[in-house]
Design a binder for these strands. Structure first.
Lengths: 201, 201, 201, 201
DNA sequence: CATGAATGAGGGTTCATTCAT
DNA sequence: AATGAATGAACCCTCATTCAT
């Protein structure tokens, strides 16, 4: 399990999950507000509803919190993307539906996406690569959907790039909101981007 | 002048420019390596070739260094983009040339782009907005090129989005290199992205 | 409570009192020796018997220490003055006794008085005024004693000035000791000053 | 000469005097505002109208400035007191005139007196004693006036104490202005204090 | 398991002083 | 004699982490 990368003094696995969920929730809201480096472990403990001592019963270092947080965000995105994918049968139209869902998802998780973009670099190499691996998996999912839905229109290579493009177009709604969300409504943004993609597909 | 947002004790304007250039150079190389927060002012001073006391003769706070650095990166990108733009007469082909140049430019300034993506959020609101304004200007340049080169193919709205897409496609070559640069050579990446855009244009 | 003007991370109120008492004791001995500005927080921590980190668990800024110190000195003087006052019934003689006690008290707290004279100005305006208010209260006590003991010999105005004179005559034994204590023994000083006052009273 | 206690690189004695006068003027206005420790040498240089480099041509250390300043204040007080004394022939009345003049003088030099009270302690032992010696001389002057004017009413001892009392009553108009000047006009203060003294004399 | 007081390395910043020009 | 850029020791304060209770 991915969470086993973080060591805890506590044995009770259920409790670990419960406490870490509290922790992640607190951390996300703080990281949104002030970023990882400007957030103190004391603040995270407080936002999580327990003491600094207790916090350290469930992690080893502050970086562990960042890892758990990034991982949780990743999982959330992935799960919801997989749900969207599962609902559709392969067809050009369903691909568009998936893309649309993904854009809505990104709108929903804007701040979380921002955290990923800005803080992953603070993870140690090994942990960072673990997170990036998951992101790669996400691209893989999108790529597979593309290849399944429009096998004749794209090469493998093109599908890979397309998957990346689509995902980054979702992300950019979050990380470039200071420019995009001033000029486009979410619906316009989705319509226009899908329009652009349509000509390609 | 943009640099006047940062106060210096030293009066000699030329010297200020010289020292700040040293500073920016040192800071960029350190920020690349360990990010803004993990870099100490002492390290920056050393990398710049002078003492910590001297460093603080040319800035007021550590954040000033980040601002100067981001601003310098921005200027560099902008200048080179403007050069590329200036070389071409308006035509569909020349638009492609500009895009290509931009992608090469992004390849060249990968690490600098990464700094922008990851550290701008550490600036104070006002300063951050100053930097973002410049980024908006950059989009404006690209948008204008599009509208000049292919006025009949795109609406104003589409041009705006296209400009953003192109720029972010350039950026992603930098910030997603862990995935893209494993699967594509720069030339392939450019070719494929431009191919995709061709169908749109 | 006056001490609540200073914020602490620690919750245990008794511990706060204990640690701050250690702190004040250490600070006084250092301020006596080298003054507020030449004393470092590390020295205060050391003199208090704990680490710099612990020091800052009980205060927010170095100035807080000065405030706590001044306030503690003030309280000490006041308490002992009130004790002296409480022991006497109103009469001309008892007024003299109170004055005498006050002079002995000043001899006892010479160095502390010096700290007040020299460092209060380093407090922020608001805090300084809080301390000065307490000093005004002290004058009020003395004034009341005068008015009670010799109501027929002095107007309200004269009592006010007299109270101030007496208090400053006490203080000057401390802050002019380099001249007074070379020429007078404490007993002589008290005798002579009271003699002078006698003619007035 | 007292000023020779401070070493200068510059030879021209007149220039030294001129520059140091500028310096003292600047320093006094800054010390009034923020005290010795919170004033930087750069600020003093600027307020004096020359560069930090020039400042250090005329002194050796920051403390030298404090010394020169205290000494200048002392001299000013002394000179004006001596003038007042010189104008009178010995008599009980002229003593009162001198005292009155002294009080007016203290009102005039309030802030300067405050500087003396709060900053002299920052001088090195030897220098401090030099300043205190001058203050002792001032007491001597007052004492002599008393003994000359009312030789039959006071013993030598009483005269000494009286001189100190008068001087401190003058000073307290400055250092306790936060309480006295709220309740008394200068004229009332002088009248009342002299009234008190009258009964003694 | 939970708590929170204690720790001290380390960070940003200041400023008296020097010295080459 | 005047200048002001350069220096670095030293200061205040923070905060991740530990550990006794």
């Amino acid at each position: 399990m991915s969470k086993d990368r973080v060591v805890s003094n506590v044995k009770d696995q259920e409790l670990i999950k419960k406490r870490r969920d509290q922790m992640i929730k607190g951390a996300i809201s703080l990281f949104k507000e002030k970023g990882f480096h400007r957030t103190t472990t004391r603040e995270i403990a407080k936002a999580s509803g327990f003491s600094i001592g207790t916090l350290y019963e469930y992690i080893r270092t502050k970086e562990d919190i960042l890892f758990l947080t990034c991982d949780a965000i990743n999982d959330q995105v992935r799960e919801r993307l997989e749900n969207a994918v599962a609902m559709e049968n392969p067809s050009r139209d369903s691909l568009l539906k998936v893309i649309e869902s993904f854009f809505y998802l990104m709108d929903d998780l804007q701040e979380e996406i921002l955290i990923l973009y800005q803080e992953v670099k603070s993870l140690q190499k090994e942990t960072r690569q673990y997170i990036l691996k998951k992101e790669r998996d996400m691209v893989g999912i999108m790529e597979k959907v593309i290849l399944k839905c429009i096998p004749d229109q794209v090469t493998k290579e093109e599908a890979t790039l397309l998957a990346n493009n689509i995902i980054v177009q979702g992300h950019m709604w979050a990380f470039r909101r200071w420019i995009l969300q001033k000029q486009f409504s979410l619906e316009d943004y989705i319509r226009l981007q899908i329009n652009g993609l349509l000509r390609v597909l």
